[in-house]
Design a protein around this nucleic acid. Sequence first.
DNA 1: AGAGGTTCTCGGGCGC
DNA 2: TGCGCCCGAGAACCTC
Length: 274
Amino acid sequence: MPEMPEVETVRKTLKNLILNKQINDITVHWPKIIKIPPEFEQFIDALKGETIVDIGRRGKFLIIYTEHYALVSHLRMEGKYRLVQNDEPVDKHTHVIFHFTDKTDLRYNDVRKFGTMHLFKIGEEFREAPLCDLGPEPFSEEFTEKYLKDILAKTNRKIKIALLDQKLLVGLGNIYVDEALFRSRIHPERMASSLKPEEIKNLHGEIVKTLLEAVEKGGSTIRSYVNSQGEMGMFQLELYVYGRKGEECKWCGTPLVKIVVGGRGTHYCPNCQK
DNA sequence: AGAGGTTCTCGGGCGC
DNA sequence: TGCGCCCGAGAACCTC
């Protein structure tokens, strides 16, 4: 499900909902979600009594900060957080419940059970997986045209696959990579190292612009994504190619094509993208 | 029936 | 031979 714009939207909405709430207890229905610590009982013991002090984001990871801990949470395909009254019936895909002292619950729901949680003491969260070794944030000063040029020159992969690699650049997923490549008129199967300076310049600009616009619209709701207040995103209405196989290109009218690249469904315009 | 918004792990291949 | 990197395939799970 969520790429950077969706996770950023979840971060903002979740922060409004749970800041300053104190965790009274935690219920874990599917322990495999919790990767660190290795035993889920330690996860519960550590967080009991802690208060939510901030919510951050790194790439597609949410970081829920309490006074002493950083809870690093990845939603993968379908993970969702909802705040509900604690007497509401528990959905069968709810795997972790944070019970607050004010009789509300933060419930982590994940149909496919792909999501992960890693708990660290504050200050240690960036020192090991999954947050170490991530590339720059697309909105940071570090993500320059030169940086993009350098990483693309060093890889033998297709451009789409390289851009999905979170070690090179965080935030892009299958939707926004297809959109950014369309907007820069680059075919997704081009070798990354074959891009010309002008194309890299365009691509850099379109990656940033596409993600910025998507954040402003609250992300894209394709099938199931809603933010922590249950609201859909609106950026799906702005998509040029993702999910539009067979429909007309908004620029030239040519029917859009869907192929598989690196195992991922890939949408593009055979006329506009070279 | 197979694909789906993600990423980790595992081998094979290559170069030093 | 060994090591490290890079790359592609498969796996984790459930719903429609």
